[in-house]
Write a protein that binds this DNA or RNA. Structure first.
Length: 550
RNA sequence: GUCCCUAUCGUCUAGAGGCCUAGGACACAAGAUUCUCAUUCUUGGAACACGGGUUCGACUCCCGUUAGGGAUACCA
């Protein structure tokens, strides 16, 4: 019995059967097949969404196929529920694979299974083939042995790694291998590299162009002792069988490129086209670093959901990061779907971009400003349902009132206000419209007191208040009151002759603004009054008696 | 240590040897708009990391330095 049969005693599918099962994809010329291949080790990273978005766009723009593959070959790091989270995050952001796994764990598509853990026998069939071809061998090195090897290499100044004469188990005889196997010594399968480190090879990358590498001479592990393949091997097998034409992935894989190309060749496969994209980074002190799962809450896509950024805002921000001409396109096509924008892989930045919340906010404000009051209500209501029960209740019990609040300077306005960047901002904007959440702080009260004749002005206004006043009619009343009590009709006039006036009309309006909203800054006061209704307005105005006693 | 990638305003970037006195967006500052804020409009400040080449000419090409990032696992 050969050592190969000892390693794989159970029958495995034949290479021919596998190759026959995975038919060549029948797609029109120029169609691209891309994939997103996350490992279920925690939450969905914003960088994962970024890559997925790019892959999805590239495939679908070319009438190709975009699929999802779960890379769960590291059973130790796998986190319960992570696969589900990946699927739901993708569908949340409307990045929908044509093949893969849905949120319920249901697989779909003709090139599955799409979970690597379910493809074990396929990988093993190819591993066996590699062994038969003499392109791989079992290695019995223990962790201690490998540590020692590394130390020795460091001491002698040699390049660390398992290669050439350092590769202790590379040239074991059949009998030696069988002895170890019989003794039950754990082993891995290593690739028997024919590469020469002193040879230079050139590889083409879709973004970085031609890259020079030394040839790979490392005998990399391709099958772990648990019988599952490593990333490198699974990548080569899966992307071949699944017909991936374009591999778009993070540039942390760039250095493994010589190995991957070498593996494709060893198996007689044609490698796909590669594009390595730079990660999204953030500023940390005065150096940049990758957004980290452990330290940065904004690394988790759920963060953007939880604070209430519209999904499209996140997507458009990411698109803007990918292709900076997106914003130009968006300005010229304000109502088109982002899917009509043609994303160009070549236009991606070869260096990593810093995540910029200020820019995200700007994009998000634009998007929210474009929503009608009705849409904003529906979207924020949906958000509140999941994330803010207090706001949810408020909106549910006062839906018409909240809708009219959201209409202020939106419905019928030339340019809607751009002061809401995320749904969680809404609470603060609508709070003071509700009597049980409205109050005036002491320092605002003293601001009213500081304005001469404030009590008389309010009393006068109460007499002439009319709920149906137009904006102009309301403002005329402010002007009338101003001149009656010695305030200039505008700032210019006041500045010209400050000694002639007690202030200008803005001081008069300020009394009402504070009385009605508790704030010194607010949207248009006449619209606010109309929205609040006369009873509420008059009640609040009458509070002047409690603020300024005779 | 070794290998690989990257380097333009504060940020994202345009830039394919002369269209560059380096353009745009965000942010910031100033001004304008019958009220504050938010809009909107106008204006402004703000960058080719450094040193060598190549060339009539370099932000652009080459080499080095520096800085940042990545890889160097039975992790992906």
């Amino acid at each position: 019995m050969s050592f190969i049969d000892r390693i794989f005693p159970n029958p495995l599918p034949s290479i021919d059967d596998i190759l026959n099962k995975y038919k060549k994809r029948n797609l029109p010329e120029g169609s691209k097949v891309t994939r997103i291949a996350p490992s279920p080790t925690g939450f969905m990273h914003i960088g994962g969404i970024y890559t997925a978005l790019i892959c999805e766009r590239v495939a679908h723009q070319s009438n190709g196929v975009f699929f999802l593959r779960i890379e769960d070959t590291d059973t130790k790091r796998e986190v319960e529920g992570a696969t589900k989270l990946i699927c739901s995050s993708l569908s949340n952001y409307n990045i929908l694979p044509d093949e893969g796994i849905d949120s319920n764990g249901q697989e779909f598509g003709d090139y599955g299974p799409y979970k690597q853990s379910e493809r074990k026998s396929i990988y093993q069939a190819f591993i066996k083939y590699m062994l038969e071809q003499g392109k791989a061998y079992p290695c019995f090195a223990t962790t201690e042995e490998l540590d020692e090897l590394r130390k020795k290499q460091e001491l002698s100044g040699a390049r660390p790694g398992y290669y050439s004469h350092w590769a202790k188990y590379r040239n074991l005889s059949e009998t030696q291998i069988l002895e170890k196997l019989d003794a039950g010594i754990p082993f891995v399968i290593r690739f028997k590299s024919e590469g020469n480190y002193n040879n230079k090879i050139v590889i083409q990358d879709g973004l970085k162009g031609k890259i020079n590498f030394p040839e790979n001479d490392l005998d990399v592990v391709i099958m772990k002792s648990d019988g599952l393949p490593t990333y490198h091997f699974a990548h080569v097998i899966d992307d071949t069988l699944m017909g991936t034409t374009h591999v778009i992935r993070g540039d942390e894989w760039l250095s493994s490129l010589p190995l991957h190309i070498q593996l494709f060749k060893a198996l007689g496969f044609t490698p796909p086209k590669y594009t390595h994209i730079s990660p999204i980074q953030k500023m940390d002190g005065d150096s940049r670093r990758k957004l980290s799962k452990r330290h940065d809450p904004e690394a988790d896509v759920r963060y953007y959901d939880s604070v209430g950024y519209p999904k499209d805002a996140v997507i458009e921000y990411l698109l803007n990061l990918a292709n900076s001409n997106f914003e130009y396109w968006r300005r010229n096509n304000p109502s088109k779907s982002y899917k009509d924008f043609n994303l160009e892989l070549k236009k991606l930045s070869p260096s990593g971009a810093l995540f910029d919340f200020v820019k995200l906010n700007n994009i998000s404000k634009e998007i929210i400003a474009k929503m009608s009051a009705e849409e904003l209500f529906i979207n924020s209501f949906e958000w509140a349902k999941q994330n803010d029960s207090e706001l949810y209740l408020l909106m549910q019990q006062n839906s018409d009132y909240v809708k009219s609040i959201l209409s202020i300077e939106r419905t019928g306005a030339k340019n809607a206000r751009k002061d809401i960047a995320k749904y969680s901002d809404i609470k603060e904007e609508i709070k003071y419209f509700f009597d049980d959440r409205f109050s005036i702080s002491d320092d605002k009260i003293s601001e009213i007191k500081d304005i001469p004749s404030s009590k008389e002005i309010v009393k006068d206004y109460i007499e002439i208040f009319n709920e149906t006043d137009t904006n102009q009619e309301w403002f005329n009343k402010m002007l009338t009151l101003s001149s009656k009590y010695g305030f200039a009709k505008n700032a210019k006039e006041y500045k010209l002759n400050p000694s002639n006036y007690k202030g200008d009309v803005s001081s008069v309006v300020k009394i009402f603004r504070i009385l009605l909203t508790g704030k010194t800054q607010s949207p248009d006061l006449s619209e606010i009054q109309k929205t609040m209704g006369s009873t509420r307005v008059l009640n609040r105005l009458k509070q002047i008696d409690n603020i300024i006693k005779d």
